[in-house]
């Protein structure tokens, strides 16, 4: 199960999204296709996010999986996401 961290907020901008961690006082600008990954993760399980990102970015499924996984790992490391046991 992937959730945004409790101290994380985000702002949708014209060309992507800005992630803000108020506790760590950090912010990162996320561009496409990762901006779509962030938005979709707030509503869908990873498998569904991957399917949609493949279509949005015209990627083969394996490449879409790599993009999604890489983004999740990065945001977990930066404290924007929490990955918890169970679920998608």
């Amino acid at each position: 199960m992937i959730r945004s961290a409790p101290d994380t907020s985000w702002i949708v901008q014209a060309d992507g999204v800005v992630l803000v961690n108020s506790r760590r006082r950090t912010a990162v600008v996320v561009r496409y296709p990762e901006a779509a990954v962030w938005d979709l993760l707030t509503r869908h399980p990873v498998a569904e996010v991957t399917r949609k990102v493949a279509c949005i970015a015209s990627l083969e499924r394996e490449e879409a999986e790599r993009v999604v996984r890489s983004a999740i790992d990065q945001w977990v490391a930066q404290g924007f996401l929490r990955e918890e046991a169970g679920g998608g």
Binding site: A14, D15, Y32
Partner: peptide, 22 residues
């Protein structure tokens, strides 16, 4: 909804890459 999400993000990505407003 599936199409709305996909088109929304595709449009924003394409506009950003081409220097267009969306």
């Amino acid at each position: 909804w599936d199409i709305v999400e996909i088109v929304t993000h595709r449009a924003r990505a394409v506009a950003a890459s081409l220097g267009l407003k969306v």
